[in-house]
């Protein structure tokens, strides 16, 4: 979706104003630490995947998304998923009162050792596609216009632009389908765009974007 998260090329957002690397803490408040850990720990329950998690943050009202701090957006996404997946009820979230313990024998709640093991193991996303890659190295491709209410990783600023296939990354889980609960592999490419093809008159710059095959057509 063309949500508020799709920020490439947006203007008027002001300076970046970076904090000094030598003094910036990993977390700026204790609640940020807790939101981070709660998000990872509940993610380990296996009731949703990373694309559903991203989509839950993106489909907030744009004003909320842009006004929130980063971890406020994580909190909003986490609450949405907990309720939508039936792990807590809307009432429990509202009252903030613990109700009965969740009775679900299929839930395996990771302990300390399992959590550490899962962090270390990661989650590789390679997954075979049904067909061979459609685009060869160097092929000229156009990013299709996509107006979808679902999750997508084709940035708005690249849609309609023509670039060339710089690298084939193999076949990876397709986020658009994964966010809708269907897991399949599609070929992933690094596509090179000149800044001029993205922005018209522009700096002498190349932008490389990772794009899945369904986002592209031969140009």
């Amino acid at each position: 979706m063309f949500g508020p998260h799709d920020l490439g090329g947006k203007q008027g957002l002001g300076p970046i104003d970076p904090e000094s690397e030598s003094t910036e803490p990993v977390f700026h408040a204790q609640w940020e630490q807790r939101v981070f850990a709660l998000t990872l720990a509940t993610g380990m329950l296996g009731r949703w995947n990373i694309d559903e998690s991203r989509f839950a943050r993106e489909r907030q009202h744009p004003v909320d998304y842009l006004q929130n701090s980063y971890y406020e957006n994580w909190l909003a996404g986490l609450q949405t998923l907990l309720v939508e997946k039936g792990l807590i009820s809307h009432e429990e979230l509202g009252s903030r009162q613990g109700a009965a313990e969740t009775v679900d024998d299929s839930l395996r709640v990771p302990d300390e050792a399992t959590a550490a093991k899962l962090l270390r193991g990661g989650g590789p996303t390679l997954l075979p596609a049904e067909q061979e890659p459609a685009f060869a190295q160097g092929a000229r491709v156009r990013v299709l216009k996509r107006y979808t209410s679902g999750h997508s990783r084709a940035p708005g600023y690249a849609q309609g632009a023509v670039g060339s296939i710089a690298r084939q990354w193999g076949s990876h889980i397709f986020p658009d389908a994964n966010a809708a609960g269907s897991r399949r592999g599609e070929h992933l490419y690094s596509v090179r765009f000149s800044a001029a093809s993205l922005w018209g008159e522009a700096e002498d710059v190349d932008v490389f974007i990772d794009l899945w095959e369904p986002y592209l057509e031969l140009a």
């Binding site: 709660l38 720990a41 509940t42 329950l45 907990l82 792990l87 807590i88 429990e92 979230l93 903030r96 009162q97 613990g98 109700a99 009965a100 313990e101 969740t102 839930l107 709640v109 990771p110 302990d111 300390e112 959590a115």
Partner: peptide, 10 residues
Amino acid sequence: SLLVEKGLVN
């Protein structure tokens, strides 16, 4: 607290 009470996180 809610998630701990419900046994959803350790």
